[in-house]
Amino acid sequence: MATNFIVNGKPAKTDAPSATPLLWVIREDLKLTGTKFGCGTGLCGACMVHIDGKRAFSCQTQVSEVAGKSITTIEGLSPDSSHKLQKAWLAESVPQCGYCQSGQIMSAADLLKNNPKPTREQIVQHMSTNICRCGTYKRIVRAVERASKEA
């Protein structure tokens, strides 16, 4: 049975079995490969997307759960990499290998949406859901702080 939902503002449809993780539909069917496979267990955050405006592990979300919902991936965060977090990420030269960074940015966007001026402790607490093996944590904090200072 087909599942209908919205991805980055556009209608999307999949015939994938209902238990298929959203991650694989996004990556392999919709070809939005910015969302990454890291652990498949909701422990690393590389697969983070927004579902109806809240962050969610797409590897832990079955496609049947998103029927009628609106999903935002890193590709839909801004049309031209102009989201203040994306700009801050470059200004602070955050990424190293970059593989986790889509998920990091999506987590950070979720934070700033609900808490535009987070304290450092709030940033650290919120962002500790996401692993960065290259160890870019210090720069992630700096980038979130930078973005939160932008109007």
Partner: peptide, 12 residues
Amino acid sequence: ELPTKVNGSAQY
């Protein structure tokens, strides 16, 4: 390659 690593376009 950094700009491609903030918008999902980097290819692994």
